[in-house]
Amino acid sequence: MSTVDEHEKDMPSEDSGGKGPPPPDPEQKNKATAYVIFFFFVGLIASLIVGWIIFPQLLYSQKEQPIDFNHALHNELVGDCASCHYFREDGTFSGVPDLWSCIDCHMDVQGEDPEEEKFVTEYVWEDREVPWLIYSKQPDCVFFSHAAHVLSGGMDCVTCHGHIGESEHSKVYQENRITGYSRDIWGRNISGFKRNSWDRMKMDDCADCHEEARDSATKDEPRAPVGRVIDNIIRVAFPGTYADNRGGSVQTQRGACFKCHK
């Protein structure tokens, strides 16, 4: 660590006149500057390593699914995603199938796969639901309707969920130690960049489509944006002229955040 002497050496003395200490040795000064620069880079590189490499590894725990599930095999047999991940009669989405959906075929062990045997003996026969780890599980504070996106919007599963239907093994579930959610929500890429639409499932990724849809809807509207200002004035001055809450949330009767957030 630095000492008082060094301090005095470093400090140019203002009132010393010509009698002050001798001018610093230029060689020593260069050496000190080099140290400063060197330590800057040590700090910089160390923190970059921590931030980019060590931190992501510490942040996520690795968990195996209770059963190694072969999507590709099942997809071949049943034909499409909706056979197992179906919409219920009331329009709600069933999500991960429960035991009831599986026992039609798996009342007994069918093949020679030890994973299937484990499933049948430990879960089906015990009437115990499989505690599947759900990669795409979102917080409860968000309204999300599969029906609106798939049935009305005509989106396919791959857009958000990727090619999971072609996987032969369940990938490792990386659980965020702080939030408890899967790494798939933030995305594999710790910096948050994505190449495919299914690489991330954060709010901004919803916005990718929704903003695009909004912009393209209003882009060609001749009244925008002046028309919108006039609309707003009319709305404030003569309440009731327009139907309430156009485009707002049905549940909360609000727009903006509360369209999706509870």
Partner: peptide, 28 residues
Amino acid sequence: MKVGRRSFLSFIIGGAAGTALSPLPWKL
């Protein structure tokens, strides 16, 4: 090699710069 106060501060500044350039604070 003597590590001076300036070097230490420099290390901290470098660390702060590196942390800011890494995803750590934003992700956290």
